[in-house]
Lab assay of single mutants.
Amino acid sequence: MAEQVALSRTQVCGILREELFQGDAFHQSDTHIFIIMGASGDLAKKKIYPTIWWLFRDGLLPENTFIVGYARSRLTVADIRKQSEPFFKATPEEKLKLEDFFARNSYVAGQYDDAASYQRLNSHMNALHLGSQANRLFYLALPPTVYEAVTKNIHESCMSQIGWNRIIVEKPFGRDLQSSDRLSNHISSLFREDQIYRIDHYLGKEMVQNLMVLRFANRIFGPIWNRDNIACVILTFKEPFGTEGRGGYFDEFGIIRDVMQNHLLQMLCLVAMEKPASTNSDDVRDEKVKVLKCISEVQANNVVLGQYVGNPDGEGEATKGYLDDPTVPRGSTTATFAAVVLYVENERWDGVPFILRCGKALNERKAEVRLQFHDVAGDIFHQQCKRNELVIRVQPNEAVYTKMMTKKPGMFFNPEESELDLTYGNRYKNVKLPDAYERLILDVFCGSQMHFVRSDELREAWRIFTPLLHQIELEKPKPIPYIYGSRGPTEADELMKRVGFQYEGTYKWVNP
Rank of each mutant, 00 (worst) to 15 (best):
Y249N: 00
R166D: 01
G204I: 01
P143D: 03
F21I: 15
E206R: 05
I167E: 00
A116F: 11
Q161R: 07
I168V: 08
F66P: 06
I15Q: 08
P143F: 02
M125W: 00
S29R: 13
I48A: 02
N126H: 14
S40K: 04
I162T: 15
F66D: 05
I234M: 15
I234H: 15
I162M: 14
P223C: 08
A127T: 11
S29D: 13
I67V: 13
S188H: 14
L96W: 13
L142I: 07
S189R: 14
A103F: 10
R246L: 02
D114H: 12
R72H: 02
N153C: 11
A217F: 03
I33W: 09
M207E: 00
G254N: 09
I230S: 00
G247C: 08
F253W: 02
Y202N: 04
G38Y: 03
L177R: 11
V12P: 12
I35G: 04
Y118V: 08
A39P: 04
A127N: 12
W53S: 01
D58A: 08
Q11D: 15
W54A: 07
P62F: 04
P92D: 12
Q178T: 14
G247F: 07
L130I: 14
S106P: 02
S123P: 00
F101M: 00
L203A: 04
P50F: 00
N218L: 01
N122F: 09
F237Q: 08
S123G: 15
F34K: 01
K47N: 05
F34Y: 10
R246D: 03
T65N: 01
T151H: 09
R198Q: 01
W164D: 08
E85N: 06
A25Y: 15
E63M: 12
Y112R: 01
R72D: 03
S180V: 04
Y139H: 03
G248C: 05
V213W: 09
N226W: 05
D100W: 08
Y49T: 04
R9W: 10
R17H: 12
I187P: 04
G254P: 03
K47E: 01
F221W: 15
Y107T: 08
Q83H: 11
I154V: 14
R57N: 07
R166E: 01
Q161T: 14
N153L: 13
E193Q: 01
F66V: 09
N218I: 00
T51V: 11
R9N: 15
E252F: 07
A115K: 15
S179P: 07
E63T: 12
L96I: 14
F191W: 10
R192A: 12
N165V: 10
R9S: 13
E156P: 07
F102C: 06
H155R: 14
Y118T: 07
S8L: 04
V146C: 10
P86Q: 13
E156V: 14
E170Q: 04
W164V: 09
W53P: 02
G248K: 05
L7R: 12
L55I: 07
H32M: 06
G245V: 01
G222D: 15
N210K: 04
L61H: 01
P144D: 02
T151L: 10
G222K: 11
S117M: 11
L16W: 10
I187Q: 04
F88M: 13
T10Q: 15
I33G: 03
E94C: 10
G69R: 02
Y118K: 05
R57C: 07
L142D: 02
A78M: 12
H201R: 04
Q119K: 13
N126G: 15
F250Y: 15
S160K: 09
Y202P: 02
A109G: 14
A71T: 03
H124P: 01
R227S: 13
L43V: 06
L203Q: 02
I80K: 00
Q111D: 10
A109Y: 15
T31R: 11
F101Q: 02
D114V: 14
H27S: 13
K171H: 05
N153Y: 11
A39H: 01
N226S: 13
N210Q: 06
T10C: 10
I67Q: 03
F87Y: 12
L137K: 00
K89S: 14
A78T: 08
G174S: 03
A6S: 15
N226Y: 07
R227D: 05
N210E: 05
G14R: 15
L235Q: 02
G248A: 05
L96E: 08
S29F: 14
I187V: 08
E239C: 05
K171F: 04
R227K: 14
A149I: 15
L190R: 13
P62N: 07
Y49C: 00
L142G: 00
H32G: 07
T10N: 13
F221V: 09
W164Y: 09
L128T: 09
Y70M: 13
L130G: 15
S40A: 00
L190Q: 12
Y249M: 02
I33D: 03
D200Q: 05
K89Q: 13
N135E: 06
D42Y: 03
K97W: 03
G69Q: 04
E148L: 12
H27T: 08
Y202D: 01
T10V: 11
V108I: 14
D194P: 09
R120A: 13
G110I: 01
F237V: 12
G174I: 04
L214G: 02
H201G: 01
K97G: 08
I67W: 05
T243I: 07
K97D: 08
L235K: 02
K238N: 00
V169M: 06
K152F: 13
M159G: 09
D58L: 11
E239R: 02
F21N: 12
I224N: 10
I154W: 02
